[in-house]
């Protein structure tokens, strides 16, 4: 089944994956594959269906249709074996407030049937890994938001998973904490762990993911590496003009794609020189000339009603 320790096939493979509730289609026939050892991102606005897809992957929510295999096993037939190979960091922290830091790891280890002595060793290693050594006996409600999130990651690793699934790992955390968590995730990725994460932060997706899909209203709009997506869907440079004072968006420029979002005008072009004349024209506004990024791709592709 494996070559040089890496199993063949996809770590996760979804085909025509469908999830509908009474009168709502949350996930609409989505197909994708995640390779072993890859960091794969799902980018999309709130309510796009990201969490639902993740929940189906870690066997927390049944599918309505299509097929989904995780570590080569069918989610409807072998959820138990899959859960043994997957670590989960859900969107909301659900640490056990009745137990301390170490207790949270040990109780989780018990659910995975890890023998006590192995669990204790692993818990101590993970506490060191997420740098909570001084907090090992602390109550959960004394931890900061960043510490709780780190402990969630440690807990997700207690069963030595092949795949780590993270639903919005850094939402609501301050920049220092986000950077610290990204470092940990990169370290895990380098150790060969397959990482699947959802986010609505473009910088997070760009920095962490080898490949990603952009999802909106239960459908995959595009997929590829962050760099390819930028190259394919927006021109290389963008001029951003804020505080436009009722000025009209220019549509008449050749080779330039123009767009208005709220009270900001965006002009995309292949070279920076092409945007220079426009920059002079917007002299009285706040202007920025920059490389286009994933956020531009995202905003161009996802539904605007959703975002405002």
């Amino acid at each position: 089944m494996s070559v040089n320790g890496i199993p063949r096939g996809f770590a996760i493979e979804a085909r025509e994956l469908l999830k509908s509730y009474d009168n709502l289609t949350a996930v609409d026939k989505v197909s994708f594959g995640v390779n072993y050892g890859e960091a794969f991102g799902m980018l999309g606005p709130n309510g796009a269906g990201k969490s639902t897809i993740l929940r189906m992957i870690y066997c927390r929510t049944p599918l309505t249709g299509g097929s989904l295999s995780v570590v080569g096993l069918d989610v409807t037939r072998e959820p138990r074996s899959i859960k043994e190979s997957v670590g989960v960091v859900p969107q909301d922290n659900n640490l056990d407030p009745d137990l301390n830091v170490r207790g949270n790891l040990l109780i989780y280890a018990r659910y995975f049937r890890i023998p006590r002595n192995v669990a204790e060793k692993r818990a101590d290693e993970l506490i060191e890994f997420v740098e909570l050594g001084e907090k090992r006996a602390a109550r959960i409600d004394t931890l900061s938001g960043g510490m709780k999130r780190r402990l969630m990651i440690a807990r997700a690793l207690i069963n030595n998973p092949m795949i780590l699934v993270l639903d919005e790992p850094t939402t609501g955390l301050d920049p220092h904490v986000r950077i610290a968590i990204w470092d940990k995730l990169r370290e895990l990725r380098q150790q060969g762990l397959t990482i699947l994460l959802s986010t609505h932060y473009m910088d997070e997706a760009e920095k962490l993911c080898d490949r990603l899909v952009i999802i909106d209203r239960g459908r995959i709009l595009v997929s590829g590496t962050p760099r390819d997506l930028i190259a394919e869907h927006v021109l290389h440079f963008v001029l951003e003009a804020r505080g436009i004072n009722g000025r009209a968006l220019r549509h008449d420029l050749t080779g330039i794609i123009s767009e208005k979002r709220g009270s900001t005008h965006f002009y995309f072009a292949r070279t920076a020189e092409m945007l220079a004349p426009l920059m002079r024209e917007y002299e009285d506004c706040e202007t920025y000339l920059r490389h286009s990024n994933l956020e531009d791709v995202f905003l161009r592709l996802t539904d605007r009603d959703h975002l405002t």
């Binding site: 927390r60 959820p79 859960k83 989780y108 659910y111 049937r113 069963n159």
Partner: peptide, 9 residues
């Protein structure tokens, strides 16, 4: 919810 992300049904 935390328990149900483990093999416990």
């Amino acid at each position: 919810d935390a328990v149900l992300c483990t093999p416990v049904e």
